[in-house]
């Protein structure tokens, strides 16, 4: 299994460094921005009070904007599940199906490695790739906090929101892996998981102002994401729930992978019946 893990990590090293360093630089810069923000709190409060609350809700809410946790939520952690979520979803859906669609999986699985070890090796490696990205970003944040005059946070306190973010990304990565085992192609799995992520973000953001969205948000994962407020302490139940669902998706994906016929390059999977696809109907009619 170690071989499989190392192979994927080696393949992902560019992406890990690219995502980690760019987000880390952003975080480091933001930490410096907090000092200015704190100095001009009065002016900014007046300015923000004129913004529609719905708009502010999209950026993580207005509550405690000038506290470290409010600032970190609004500027970084509220949007990160969507931004790094794209990486998580793309890597999750491509973890097996990417290689299957380009024909590589056929050759790899003809070697003496069990499907279970292959599957979990790859799943662990892809989760590790996210963890490594977040570790790089966390180091940059910790460096930024150390330089900041206004932010009075320890490195371990700063680690908490990253743990929560990791749990959320792990859940979406394993969900897209599961969907890739169910849906006919990598692109449809990516699209389905992406829609759920973005939809969840919108519903959760609007739930403050709309009761229907509020009820719906209870069934979506982002409701249980603490964002920057995890600095104050981790919600164990929420965290376990996110990791638990992530593991459940991984296990379901594993069961499906064990039963799967490995396709070779160019072979199709199942398709929706033609009468269910409107554009196909139109083409046929014309």
């Amino acid at each position: 299994m170690i071989t499989v893990i190392l192979q994927i990590l080696r393949r992902s090293r560019g992406a890990i460094l690219g995502w980690g360093l760019s987000l880390g630089l952003l975080g480091f810069y933001m930490m410096q921005f907090y000092d200015t923000l704190a100095e001009q709190q009065g002016i900014l409060e007046e300015l923000i009070s004129n913004y529609p609350p719905q708009l502010m809700a999209f950026f993580g809410g207005t509550e405690n904007l000038f506290s470290p946790q409010g600032f970190l939520s609004m500027e970084f952690f509220s949007i990160m599940p969507v931004i790094v979520g794209i990486y998580a979803i793309v890597t999750g859906s491509g973890l097996l199906l990417g290689d299957e669609e380009n024909g590589t999986l056929d050759l790899l699985l003809a070697h003496p490695v069990s499907r279970t070890k292959f599957y979990f090796g790859r799943a662990i490696a892809s989760a590790l790739s996210i963890a490594l990205i977040l570790i790089i970003v966390w180091i940059a944040f910790a460096g930024g906090v150390a330089i900041s005059e206004q932010l009075d946070l320890g490195a371990l306190e700063m680690l908490r929101p990253f743990i929560v973010l990791f749990a959320m990304l792990f859940l979406f990565q394993m969900l897209s892996l599961l969907l890739s085992m169910v849906l006919p192609s990598r692109s449809t799995a990516t699209m389905a998981a992406g829609l759920l992520l973005v939809g969840s973000y919108f519903v959760n953001s609007l739930s403050e102002f709309n009761q229907t969205f509020d009820k719906l948000a209870d069934y979506l994962p982002l409701r249980y994401y603490q964002s920057g407020y995890a600095i104050e302490g981790l919600n164990g139940e929420w965290l376990l729930g996110l990791f638990g669902f992530g593991l459940l998706f991984a296990l379901l994906g594993w069961i499906l992978f064990l039963r799967r016929d490995i396709r070779v390059s160019g072979e199709g999977s199942w398709r929706l019946p033609g009468w269910l696809i409107p554009w196909k109907r139109i083409r046929k009619d014309s």
């Binding site: 393949r11 024909g103 003496p112 070779v264």
Partner: peptide, 21 residues
């Protein structure tokens, strides 16, 4: 006993694909 079979077998697929990089 797929792992054992594969350990003792050499396979050349009809169209070889591999990590291009």
């Amino acid at each position: 006993r797929s792992v054992e079979v594969r350990a003792r077998t050499g396979y050349l697929p009809g169209e070889l694909a591999f990590d291009g990089n």
